[in-house]
Every structure is written in C-alpha cells, then in structure tokens.
Computed example of a mutant assay.
Amino acid sequence: MQIVLCDDAEQTAREAAKWVQALLVHKTRPVLGLATGSTPIRLYQELIQLYQQQKISFANCTTFNLDEYFDIAPAHKQSYRSFMQTQLFNHIDINLQNTHLPACSQGQNPRLVGLEYEQHIAAAGGIDLQILGIGSNGHIGFNEPTSSLASRTRLKTLTAQTMSDNSRLFSPDEVQPTMAMTMGIATIMDARYVLLIATGLGKAEAVRQMVCGPVSAYCPASVLQMHEHAIVVLDKAAASLISDQQYLKVAEQENQRMIEIYGLQFIAES
C-alpha cells in the first residue's frame, strides 16, 4: 500500500489527479473506475481543468462507476448518474455510451444486473484504475461492514451509519434510498490500480483501521492491504491517527523516484 500524505484536501485532489492523468495520457483505451460522494468532487474539478487546458482527453476512455442507488431513475437529481453528469461528464469529451453504472430498477433481477455488470467490465478488458472513497465505517463502494471479501456486483442494504452520513445530501421531503447496487470487493480488487482518497477528521478512524488494522470484513477497506498497487492519498486530518508518518513520507519520496525511473505498470502495458 502506497501512502501519499498531503497538507489539505486541495493538494489531495491534485495528487490524485496526477495518477488519472498518467493513465489517460499513456493508455490508448483506458478503463477508469469512478466514485461518487463529496470526496471525489475536488478530483473531478482538477480533471475538468486539465481537460480544458488540453492536457488530457476522455474521448477513448470507458468508465465504470462503483455503485448506484436501487430503483432510482437516471434523471433523478439524487441518482449517481445525475451526479456524474453534473460533476464530470457534462464538462469533458467522454462518449456517454462508454459510461456505465450498475443501475437496477424494481422490475429487474439484481443478481442478473450484477452479473451483466461484471461481464461488461470483463469485456472492456478490466479496470485500469479504480477511484475510491472510504466511508466512516470503512466501506468501499457500498460494501458495508461484514461484506464478503470475495463479493461481486450485487444489491446491498445500507447501514444506519451510511444512511446517517448520506442524509445531509437529501432534503426533508425526499425519500432516502435504503439499498444500492455496488461493485463487490473482489471486483474492486481486480482493478490493476486502486486510488483511494480520504479527507477530513471524520475519516481518520476508518483510515487507521484500513492502513494499520487487520484485514477484516468489519473494515472492508482493509482488504486493500492485499492489493499489489493500492495508492492511498490522505490529507493531514484523515491521516492523523496513523503512526510513523515520517517513514511514510520517506517511503513516498522513494516511490516517486522509482516511478520516475521505471514508470507505472499500466503505462508499460499500453
């Protein structure tokens, strides 16, 4: 696990954007995994700026989102499809036919929808770089605590903690979804690289368990300790409960030196 320590949320977004930029520039047909929520918004703003500066293009990019609320219309303002349109897709040159979310309506069989989503990912050649956030309870995607580490895309019931954390996004007159389709933990682990971003004190304990704790279904993000290419980009607040930060800073300097010499694996595979 490669830990990148940043001063604040803005620097965190800039550092994360470098990884996405490298993928888009050096991979002929990149496959990018996307996340929603408040954390990646700054990253998407950085990517939009890079696009406007003509430093990157999404024209040949295929995307797969981590999750989508169950039985929500794509045009609904709370859908993750609407989120992606507003926060990223409407501002870049991506072909919307190449953007995918695990949408599932009441009239569809979630198991079949999940299987089809997995097949679409495989047909695209797999995900090169999966962007992740982390929930205050350690979830990645909507893989809540106790989720199987071998899970695939499926329907999950949201925990009370997640419902509470997300309630700020819903007005009092809106019905907040209690279930969502999500990539499974094994699906996420199949990505060639994973890029997890965390900011703020509210994520500090989950980050500590992810980085320093045992690999456990009770902290789904802890499975990233087992990923060959996991990059975790943190601001000071999110990293505040991690010990031995001086070593992590030195290790990151050495990691960057090796990247400058030898490049990134997904670049070598282009």
Results as ranks from 00 to 15, higher is better:
119 Q>T: 15
128 D>L: 04
117 Y>I: 08
176 Q>I: 00
101 L>M: 06
22 A>C: 13
109 N>M: 03
247 Y>T: 13
18 K>R: 10
183 M>D: 01
203 K>F: 10
162 T>Q: 12
244 D>C: 11
26 H>F: 09
87 Q>D: 09
234 L>M: 02
198 A>N: 01
87 Q>C: 12
89 F>Y: 15
28 T>P: 05
88 L>Y: 11
85 Q>T: 02
31 V>D: 03
44 Y>P: 11
177 P>E: 05
82 S>G: 07
11 Q>K: 13
1 M>K: 12
57 S>V: 01
56 I>N: 04
102 P>T: 05
213 G>T: 01
16 A>D: 05
230 A>L: 12
183 M>C: 03
126 G>Y: 10
122 A>R: 14
114 G>E: 02
67 D>T: 10
169 L>V: 03
160 A>C: 11
183 M>S: 04
127 I>F: 12
261 I>K: 15
62 T>D: 09
102 P>M: 07
181 M>F: 07
61 C>I: 04
21 Q>K: 11
39 T>W: 00
62 T>E: 14
73 A>R: 10
133 G>D: 07
31 V>T: 12
190 D>S: 12
76 H>N: 14
73 A>H: 13
101 L>N: 07
188 I>S: 13
51 Y>I: 03
229 H>P: 02
225 Q>H: 02
83 F>E: 09
157 T>N: 15
151 S>W: 03
135 G>V: 04
58 F>V: 05
182 T>N: 03
208 R>K: 15
77 K>N: 04
230 A>D: 11
116 E>Y: 07
3 I>L: 15
5 L>K: 05
133 G>M: 08
44 Y>D: 10
223 V>A: 06
103 A>Y: 00
18 K>Y: 05
166 N>H: 02
165 D>K: 01
126 G>K: 09
73 A>I: 04
16 A>P: 08
227 H>D: 09
1 M>C: 12
134 I>V: 14
186 A>S: 07
112 L>D: 15
207 V>S: 00
87 Q>H: 15
42 R>N: 13
182 T>I: 06
107 G>C: 09
229 H>E: 06
169 L>Y: 14
172 P>V: 01
